[in-house]
């Protein structure tokens, strides 16, 4: 009970101090919320882009063209080597089937009739089980080096580029998060230093009448905690309403492309909250500790 009274007094004192300067407190909390919501929002957009690139990779195929004049033996050798190398579905379309499919197309039907020989190459269509674009690129490069292969077309090359772009952007977002984190700690540090300066006399008196470092530090930690909590809450609300009412408005335009932005779940919304609280506590602890080291021996 005594334990609770001592802490609740410090907590209510910290709340009162925030309420005494409502405009400053609101602006500071809003600043924290906006600063946090930017990288979180970017991360959600990237998550959507990531899902999009994965989908593209899932539908990607490798087309392996074998020269039209290749013998049956060569085609069998190609099939054997592809089966050994490739993990997925392999479909063979020989040049006659290829020509038939081409003649079905009204634009080419007349042209096909006038051909003396069949110039269409044999085709192996490789559909992967694993959608890893990097792995598919490696497979395509290996096949391209085989002597009997005329050409390899890989329709997911640009999806690979998109995936690389998404990965790079994720790293950039992480760097932004790191920088914002540092800025956060610095901002709370300065803010608590200001509070310490305002309460310098109180700290001195408390120290004289026997306050421990923990007792002196406590209201500043609570002050940082409350600010961090409210800042994180503000960020979570900005993300929630931006996605709910802002991005969802353009979702119909993105849907045909297979680009979806997921509604923020509890984990997504609680992460800025935890991030903000942890960094605010760190900033408050560093700041109050720094002061205590200066005044006590």
């Amino acid at each position: 009970m005594n334990w609770f009274y001592s802490r609740s007094s410090a907590f209510s004192d910290s709340v009162c101090r925030l309420l005494k300067q409502p405009v400053t407190s609101i602006l500071h909390i809003l600043g924290m919320g906006i600063a946090l919501s930017i990288p979180m929002g970017c991360y959600m957009l990237l998550d959507g882009a990531d899902q999009f690139s994965r989908k593209l990779n899932n539908t990607s195929q490798l087309n392996v063209f074998i020269a039209a004049d290749s013998s049956d033996k060569t085609i069998k050798l190609a099939e054997k080597q592809l089966t050994e190398l490739f993990d997925g579905e392999i479909t063979f379309i020989d040049q006659d089937d290829g020509l038939k499919q081409l003649s079905k197309n009204s634009e080419f039907s007349e042209l096909v009739k006038n051909l003396d020989t069949n110039p269409i190459p044999h085709l192996f269509v490789l559909t992967p089980l694993d959608s890893d674009a990097k792995k598919l690129t490696d497979v395509a490069q290996t096949i391209e080096n085989w002597s009997f292969v005329e050409e390899v077309s890989f329709d997911a090359k640009w999806a690979l580029k998109l995936e690389s772009f998404v990965n790079l952007s994720k790293i950039l977002v992480m760097m932004v998060v790191l920088l914002i984190g540092l800025g956060f700690v610095a901002s709370i540090f300065t803010n608590i230093q200001l509070q310490i300066t305002i309460r310098k006399d109180e700290i001195e008196i408390a120290r004289i009448v026997g306050a421990t470092g923990r007792f002196i530090r406590r209201p500043f930690l609570y002050y940082g905690f409350i600010q961090g909590l409210l800042g994180g809450l503000c960020a979570a609300l900005i993300i929630f309403f931006s996605v709910k009412f802002g991005l969802n408005a353009i979702q119909p335009m993105l849907e045909p492309l297979g680009f979806y932005i997921r509604d923020p779940d509890l984990v997504t919304l609680s992460s800025p909250l935890l991030f903000s609280v942890a960094l605010s506590l760190l900033g408050a602890w560093l700041s109050s500790n720094n002061h205590l080291k200066k005044i006590d021996y």
Binding site: M1, N2, D201, E204, I205, A206, I208, V209, G210, A211
Partner: peptide
């Protein structure tokens, strides 16, 4: 117990809370 010429009182707290400070620090009940 310290008594100072300049009193060193907390002007943002009541008389009661000024006197209560050492007891709060000592962890006594309300």
């Amino acid at each position: 117990g310290f008594v100072f010429q300049d009193h060193k009182l907390l002007i943002d707290r009541s008389v009661f809370h000024n006197v209560a400070l050492p007891l709060l620090i000592s962890g006594l009940s309300k």
